[in-house]
């Protein structure tokens, strides 16, 4: 079995990819492209209890725990949010709960996307990260019991 790259290593990859772009259009087009490539979420998962609060758009997210690692799936009705969540899934999916909880997420600032972390009701990135970390904590506590 090949080793899953660490959260830091994936973040470095993303930083490098974004460093190729020198204007906002390219960055957002890349993000939109990531959104389009996000694997489909089963319609059965698109229910109220899987919705993430605090987003202007609708975001559904589910997670599962396998062999000490967490796997996320998500979808949104807005494309940029879909791109952001696709990026988060790339960073977090397949990682260990403790690593997810302690990730500092500084790479978001480095790639110039920190505006999506702003504390306005319209930006859901902060809520998505919070939910992913909460899920990780829940899985971690189940793991310890």
């Amino acid at each position: 079995m090949t080793d899953t790259p660490t959260i830091k290593a994936i973040e470095e990859e993303i930083i490098e990819e974004f460093s190729l772009f020198d204007n906002w259009e390219d960055k957002y087009e890349y993000l939109i492209d990531m959104g389009k490539k996000l694997p489909k979420l089963d319609d059965a998962h698109k229910k109220d209890e899987n919705k993430i609060r605090g987003c202007q758009s609708t975001v559904w997210m589910v997670s599962e725990y396998k062999n000490g690692r967490i796997f996320y799936k998500a979808d949104s009705d807005a494309m940029i949010v879909k791109g952001l969540i696709s990026m988060l899934i790339r960073v977090f999916s397949g990682q260990k709960p403790a690593d997810i909880v302690s990730a500092d997420m500084k790479f978001i600032d480095t790639i110039g996307m920190s505006t999506h972390l702003a504390q306005t009701r319209s930006n859901g990135l902060r809520s998505m990260i919070k939910q992913m970390k909460l899920d990780a904590m829940v899985w971690a506590s189940k793991e310890n019991n």
Binding site: W24, M79, I80
Partner: peptide, 18 residues
């Protein structure tokens, strides 16, 4: 989605409400 419109307009210096 209106949110995508709002974000991409903001990057062009245009403030609308969505």
């Amino acid at each position: 989605h209106p949110q995508d419109i709002g974000i991409l307009l903001d990057n062009q210096g245009i403030a609308v409400r969505t």
